[in-house]
Simulated assay, not measured.
Amino acid sequence: MRASGAERFGNYLLLIVFGCFALAPIVSIVVAALGPDDGGSGSSGLGNFGKAWEIGHFGTYLRMSLLVSVSVVVASVLLSILSGYAFGTMRFRGAGVLFYLFLLGIMMPTEAIVVPLYFDLRTLGLTDTYWAVALPQVAQSVAFGTFWMRAYFRSSSRALVEAARLDGAGHWRTLWQVLVPPARPALVTLIVLVFMWTWNEFLIPLVMVTSESLRTAPLGLAFFSGQYTSGFTLLAAGAVIVGLPVVLVYAFLQRHFIAGMLEGAVRE
């Protein structure tokens, strides 16, 4: 049944209104970042970004965030593929119990585990290191990634798997040559989500590290806002610098991301 012209107009109008609500804060921050510095430094436009970059040491923070985000994405996606394949295609004793343990990782908020996790990592001598920032986020991402990839593998074509088995393919070959190539939309969606969550993580770096060289971009922005409060313009420029990588990743992969989300919705 086709929608009438009035229905289409109402749908577009509603989308435009909600789009304006969503974009208004972003546009206001960008406009503020490009305006004259209200802190009295005399900079304006792109000069605000250069000044914020220099004062806030965002180069160091962005490198740390990029290192952590890329390593967490690679490790968690790889482990999620393996665990999702096991839970989605294999039948073994204790599979249900193990899967529910993974689900606990999704349901458990970071605030509930960060203090005991800090003491555990301190006992191992890992606090104030790169590993204290990356490893907890790998564990959190694998919990969701396992749930996500299990749903995909459970709904994948059984005929492909059976044909591969008849051809003599083992589990390893079936996974990487038969099931993973068609899973690109689901994998891209997982990559974008994990990258976004890791990049924006604030609490774990705040608790686990004290060295300035190990601060991530959101944590560095918080310290920048604490030490540079004479004007809003440079804070807005710093916020744009920190948020830009996530926007670029999503813009570059948004077609596959939306396809993966729609594919998951249809299968559910």
Rank of each mutant, 00 (worst) to 15 (best):
L193Y: 13
S41H: 06
G145I: 00
L23T: 00
T123K: 13
L126D: 05
V17W: 09
L190F: 12
S230V: 00
A236V: 02
L262Y: 06
W199T: 03
V138E: 05
E7I: 07
V240A: 14
L175R: 06
F9T: 09
L126G: 06
G39K: 01
V242L: 11
I113R: 04
V247Y: 11
V178C: 12
A151F: 05
G260A: 04
A265T: 00
F257P: 05
V30E: 07
G168W: 08
M261P: 03
T174G: 09
I16P: 07
G226T: 00
V114L: 06
C20T: 02
P218T: 02
V72R: 02
S211L: 08
Q254W: 02
G84E: 03
I106R: 11
T146Y: 04
P25G: 10
S213F: 04
F195W: 13
L244E: 04
V72K: 03
A75W: 07
G40D: 07
I191V: 15
A52C: 11
R8P: 04
R63T: 07
V97N: 02
F252D: 08
S71I: 01
V114D: 04
R184L: 15
D167N: 14
G125W: 01
V180C: 13
V68H: 02
I258P: 03
G47Q: 09
A239G: 15
F224W: 07
G243M: 09
L82S: 11
F119A: 12
L46G: 14
F195E: 07
A86D: 08
V138P: 12
L101G: 15
V192N: 01
S230C: 07
A186V: 04
I29F: 08
F224I: 02
F252W: 12
F49L: 12
A163I: 00
